[in-house]
C-alpha cells in the first residue's frame, strides 16, 4: 500500500495513492481512510470528506470484493486515487468480469425498493459522485469522479 505525491508535469504536486488489498471487507476501512485523508489535505469540503467520498468508495470496494471477486480472498482489489485541479478520480479494479451497473442502479426505481435490505450501493455511488463509469480490460474497473467545486 502506498500513498504519495507525484508531479503532474506542470510542476504542481498531485496527491495520489495506490493500494492493493485482498478480497476481505476488513481491508476496506484503511483504504477509505487514506483516500479521505488525501481529499481533506487537498481542500475538499468537509461534508464531501465525511460523506460522499467514504460512502461511495466503500460501496465501490465492497462491490469489487463481493460481486467482482466473489469474496475470494485469493483475488485482489486495486484502488488508485488521484487528485488534480479538476477534482478526485478513484479507480477500483477487481479480477472479475463486471456486472450490469445500470441494472443495479435501476433497482431504485422499483416498487418496494425502500423496504429492501440490499440494492442501495450502486445508487449511492451515483448519488454521491459527479460521474461513475465502468470498463473491462485487465479486470473490471469502476471509476468514481468528484469535482472539486
Amino acid at each position: 500500500m502506498r500513498s504519495l505525491v507525484s508531479d503532474s508535469g506542470s510542476g504542481a504536486a498531485v496527491p495520489c495513492g495506490e493500494w492493493t488489498i485482498a478480497s476481505d471487507i476488513r481491508e476496506i476501512d484503511r483504504v477509505v481512510l487514506a483516500v479521505t485523508t488525501l481529499c481533506e489535505a487537498a481542500g475538499f469540503p468537509p461534508k464531501v470528506c465525511r460523506l460522499n467520498v467514504p460512502v461511495a468508495l466503500t460501496e465501490a470496494i465492497a462491490n469489487a470484493i463481493e460481486r467482482g471477486n466473489g469474496g475470494d480472498v485469493a483475488r485482489s482489489v486495486r484502488v488508485m486515487a488521484r487528485i488534480d485541479e479538476a477534482g478526485l478520480c478513484v479507480e477500483v479494479t477487481d479480477e472479475g468480469n463486471g456486472f450490469d451497473l445500470d441494472a443495479a442502479r435501476a433497482l431504485a426505481t422499483e416498487d418496494g425498493w425502500v423496504e429492501r435490505e440490499d440494492g442501495r450501493g450502486v445508487f449511492l455511488m451515483y448519488a454521491l459522485m459527479d460521474h461513475v463509469e465502468t470498463s473491462c480490460d485487465a479486470g473490471h474497473t469502476v471509476r468514481l469522479v468528484l469535482r472539486k467545486s
Binding site: R50, L51, P54, V55, T58, E59, A62, E115, R116, E117, D118, G119, R120, G121, F123, L124
Partner: peptide, 13 residues
C-alpha cells in the same frame, strides 16, 4: 460516522 448501503440495509432488516 458514515453509514454505507450495508449499514442501511441492516437497519431496514
Amino acid at each position: 460516522g458514515y453509514i454505507d448501503s450495508s449499514g442501511l440495509g441492516a437497519l431496514v432488516s
